[in-house]
Amino acid sequence: MLFDPRSLHSDLRFQFARSGGAGGQNVNKVATKAELRFSVRESTLLTDEQRATLLDKLANKLTTEGELVLTHQTERTQLANREKVIKKFDRLIAKAFEVPKPRKATKPSAGMIAQRLDQKKRRSEVKASRRRIDD
């Protein structure tokens, strides 16, 4: 199932704050840090199955209220930080809905089995030759 995270953009809430860290005059006056909030539990755009998937896959990134909070603060403008945090959100949601490719069980070839046994035998002989000989 392909899922487009952009369909959830209407449920996003933004807050802006002053960025942390070293800066200059600008960092002390301008609130450029973008904080994105998305409530997985209260979203009207998700089906119950999608909601359960997100709650399961993003469990370690959600608050106790089931809210996803992402921030970005490296850019100098609110708009740039807002765009970056939206991209981060889109990647995270898309990855949560990715279906992993099923693993195909394989057997080692006869040649690989023989090679492994041969290496084990050689290694055993090397170690045996290091042992002390009792009289």
Rank of each mutant, 00 (worst) to 15 (best):
V69A: 00
T44V: 08
S129Y: 06
P5S: 13
F14G: 11
Q50G: 09
A128K: 15
E75M: 01
L79Y: 10
N60R: 08
E75Y: 03
L58A: 04
L55T: 06
D118R: 14
L2G: 07
A34F: 05
K61W: 03
F16M: 03
L55D: 13
S109I: 03
P100Y: 07
T32W: 09
R91H: 04
G23K: 10
R130P: 04
F16S: 05
R41P: 07
T77N: 03
G66E: 09
I86L: 09
Q50R: 14
P102K: 05
K127M: 13
A96Y: 06
A114T: 10
A34T: 10
I113V: 15
V40S: 00
Q119W: 04
T106N: 12
E125C: 00
R103Q: 06
K107Q: 14
S109T: 15
L46Y: 08
T44Y: 04
R82F: 03
K87F: 04
V27C: 06
N26I: 00
A110W: 06
E35K: 11
S124H: 12
A128W: 04
N81E: 11
Q73F: 03
K95V: 00
F14N: 11
V99A: 10
R6M: 10
D56Y: 00
K127P: 04
E49K: 02
E49D: 12
E42N: 11
K88P: 02
E98L: 06
E125W: 00
Q15D: 15
R132F: 14
L12I: 15
S43Q: 05
T53A: 12
N28D: 13
L12P: 07
L92K: 06
N28Y: 12
G111C: 01
M1P: 11
D11E: 14
F89D: 00
S124R: 11
K61M: 09
T74C: 02
Q119D: 14
D90C: 04
N60W: 05
T106H: 09
F3A: 09
K107W: 08
L55I: 01
D90M: 04
P102M: 03
F97G: 09
S129G: 09
D135S: 11
I86R: 04
T64C: 02
R116N: 12
Q78Y: 01
S19L: 02
T106I: 13
E75F: 02
A52P: 00
K57F: 02
N81G: 10
G111K: 15
L70I: 02
L36M: 07
R103L: 08
D118F: 05
F16L: 04
E98D: 08
I113T: 11
L79G: 07
V85M: 04
Q50L: 11
A17T: 10
V40W: 01
E35C: 11
E125R: 06
K87E: 15
P5L: 05
D56R: 06
D11N: 07
A110H: 14
K104S: 10
R82G: 07
L70G: 01
H72Y: 13
Q25I: 08
R18H: 13
A17Y: 07
G24Y: 00
T53S: 08
P108A: 12
N60H: 11
E75A: 05
Q73M: 02
A59V: 03
A80Y: 08
D134T: 05
I133C: 09
A22H: 08
